[in-house]
């Protein structure tokens, strides 16, 4: 089953030079074709500036592609909707709302009545391990805890698809490892379709079923690598031979792609 289909997605950014009056164009995405299967965990890796975040925001409906279409369950979509949830690198929590109120935001917008909202919030707060912090404001939380809130908030209104844009890039190594494990556990429990953008190859191999490798200028998907490793994966998995071997393989493929992109 194909959940999400991206067809020939291109994105050109225009930049007007005020001094010379000339119009510049930057082709951020040069025709992306990608299919994400229902319930799979797909990671996109690529060097910074390859347009992977732009692609994620197009999938999320936050920006429009210059050309091409996005299909979800076979239907073309434009604009954001409750069938997709986004987790941003910068957490994007509302500082004036406490943990519960942040998680309730999407539910409010969906029109869920208050009583049900509170029940759902409680459930997701416990799912991400934040019980006892219901009334804390974002400034009172650590980076890892903020990202837990952001994940709970994106899950709370029950989207089919979770789009994660380098969610752990700003966290320290230990917190990152812990949260990767948490995301896998939550994914096993909820079986959402996940698109996870990262530049960290180890993270991609640890989490994903498949890895899409992107190249820079134009941003296109160069290769898709299957990660045929068993699940569920726990912390010990990081030291297994299979994992280490595959991580090296993927690493060299990504480096090759990066090299050929700079040579051409």
């Amino acid at each position: 089953m194909i959940k999400v289909k991206a067809e020939d997605i291109t994105k050109v950014f225009h930049s007007k030079n005020g001094n010379t009056g000339t119009n510049g164009c930057v082709e951020a995405l040069g025709g992306i074709n990608l299919e994400i299967r229902t319930g799979e965990f797909l990671a996109i890796v690529g060097p910074s500036g390859c347009g992977k975040s732009t692609f994620l925001e197009i999938l999320g409906g936050l920006i429009k592609p210059s050309c091409g279409s996005i299909y979800i369950d076979g239907k073309a979509v434009s604009g954001p909707n409750h069938d997709r949830g986004i987790v941003f690198q910068g957490y994007a929590l509302f500082p004036w709302r406490n943990v519960t109120e942040n998680i309730a935001y999407g539910l409010e917008e969906k029109g869920v009545p208050k009583k049900t909202r509170n029940e759902i919030c409680r459930k997701y707060i416990s799912l991400v391990g934040l019980s006892g912090f219901e009334n804390h404001y974002p400034y009172q939380l650590s980076g890892g805890m903020k990202q837990r809130v952001a994940i709970a908030r994106a899950l709370a209104y029950d989207p089919d698809i979770l789009l994660m844009d380098e969610p752990f890039a700003a966290l320290d190594a230990q917190t990152r490892d812990t949260l990767q494990g948490e995301v896998l556990r939550i994914w096993e429990e909820t079986r959402k379709t996940v698109l996870f953008v990262t530049h960290n190859i180890e993270e991609a191999v640890f989490l994903a079923d498949r890895i899409a490798v992107m190249s820079v200028r134009p941003g296109i998907i160069k290769r898709i690598i299957d990660i045929p490793l068993s699940r569920p994966r726990f912390e010990e998995f990081r030291t297994s031979q299979d994992f280490i071997k595959l991580r090296q393989e993927v690493g060299s493929i990504v480096r090759e792609e990066a090299k050929s992109a700079t040579n051409s």
């Binding site: 925001e57 999320g60 409906g61 936050l62 954001p80 909707n81 409750h82 997709r84 949830g85 986004i86 941003f88 910068g90 994007a92 509302f94 935001y105 999407g106 409010e108 917008e109 969906k110 908030r153 209104y157």
Partner: peptide, 19 residues
């Protein structure tokens, strides 16, 4: 980023303004 985040959760223009 907060505007983006709110829009991703289906906020309308009015709700974006108010919330």
């Amino acid at each position: 980023l907060l505007i983006k985040s709110a829009r991703s959760m289906g906020s309308s223009a009015i709700s974006l303004f108010r919330k």
